[in-house]
Simulated scan of single mutants.
Amino acid sequence: MMSFDAVAQQPKALFLLQGLAAFAAVVALVLLALHRGPVRRRAAALILLAPALLLLAIGLLLPALRTLALSFTDSGGDAWVGLDNYVWTVTDPGALIVLRNTLTWVVLVPLTSTAVGLAYAAAVARSRFRTFALALVLTPMAISLVGAGVVWKFVYAYRPAEAGQIGLLNRLVVAFGGEPRQWLVESPWNVLLLVVVTVWTQTGFAAVLLAAAIRAVPTELTEAARLDGASPGQILRRITVPSIRPTLLVVLLAQAIGTLKAFDVVRTMTGGQFDTDVIAHAMYDQAFRYGETGRGAALAVLLFLLVTPFVAHQVRARRRTG
Rank of each mutant, 00 (worst) to 15 (best):
S127E: 14
T139N: 11
M141N: 09
R126P: 03
G147W: 08
V151M: 13
A148E: 00
F132K: 07
S144H: 07
V106C: 12
A135T: 14
R126L: 02
V146W: 07
V109L: 05
W105Q: 10
A121S: 04
R130H: 08
A123P: 08
R130T: 11
A148N: 10
V124P: 06
R126C: 05
S127C: 08
R128K: 15
L145P: 01
V151C: 03
V124E: 03
A135G: 15
A121D: 00
V124H: 05
V146T: 14
L145E: 04
A142P: 00
M141E: 09
A133Q: 11
L138R: 07
V124R: 13
T114K: 09
T104H: 13
P110G: 03
P140L: 01
L111C: 04
L134T: 13
V124F: 05
V124Q: 09
M141S: 09
A121Q: 09
L136G: 00
V137T: 08
A122S: 13
T112P: 02
A142H: 09
S144R: 08
W105T: 00
V116W: 10
A133K: 12
A123N: 05
W152N: 09
M141K: 06
S127D: 14
L145T: 06
V107H: 00
T104L: 14
P110W: 07
W152Y: 11
I143D: 03
T139H: 08
V116E: 01
L136F: 11
M141V: 10
A123H: 11
V107G: 04
T114V: 09
V116D: 02
V151Y: 09
V137I: 14
A125W: 01
L136S: 10
A142E: 08
T112F: 01
V109D: 00
A119E: 03
A121F: 12
G117E: 05
V137S: 03
F132M: 14
A123I: 11
S144K: 05
G117K: 10
V150M: 12
V109H: 00
A115R: 12
T114Q: 06
P140W: 02
V109F: 03
M141R: 06
F132E: 09
G149N: 06
V107Y: 05
T104Y: 14
V107L: 14
L145R: 12
G147Q: 07
M141Y: 13
